[in-house]
């Protein structure tokens, strides 16, 4: 059994495998597939609770993944500042060759769901090698 503690390595291998065999489009299509077929729990939370649902989802996942992050939850906005991405940390620790576009999955996977419910989703990759990024989600029609 590929343990859930080994999943990030398998995920990274899958991206590289798809890219090498079938091109980047197959990787992006996979991310879309994951978003549509696996992240239904996030979708239900956002649909039902909006920003509170986002906070619930990411608090659960990032705690279990032992991420180092700051979260800001407002009435009209939601932010995550990722200080140490757990996935990047695992790959750096195990010295595996990271898929060059690895971090992009966090843009496609979540944006697709979040923007469906009236929010703008922006991700900024600050240091992909160290696993530092920020996600900013804002309720539409609200000036920053």
């Amino acid at each position: 059994m590929i343990s859930c503690t080994e999943f990030i390595l398998a995920y990274n291998e899958l991206f590289k495998f798809l890219h090498k065999r079938y091109g980047k489009k197959a990787v992006v299509d996979f991310w879309i597939y994951i978003s549509d077929n696996f992240l239904t729990n996030l979708e239900h939370l956002v649909e039902e609770k909006g920003i509170a649902g986002m906070a619930e989802y990411w608090t659960h996942t990032l705690t279990e993944e032992k991420a180092e992050y700051c979260m800001e939850v407002g009435k009209k906005h939601f932010r995550i500042y990722m200080k140490k991405c757990p996935s990047v940390g695992i790959m750096n620790q195990r010295k595996v060759e990271k898929y060059p576009y690895y971090c992009e999955h966090c843009d496609i996977l979540y944006k697709r769901i979040i923007e469906k419910y009236g929010f703008d989703y922006r991700i900024k990759f600050i240091d992909k090698n160290k696993g530092i990024c920020s996600i900013k989600i804002i309720k539409r029609n609200i000036k920053q």
Partner: peptide, 26 residues
């Protein structure tokens, strides 16, 4: 110790994608 068991579900969806799109051999 807390571990993120939902990853098993993501892996399963990955297997499904590979087979649907490129076949079982893939």
């Amino acid at each position: 110790e807390k571990i993120h068991k939902d990853f098993h579900g993501a892996l399963s969806v990955g297997f499904e994608y590979l087979v649907k799109r490129f076949g079982k051999k893939s």
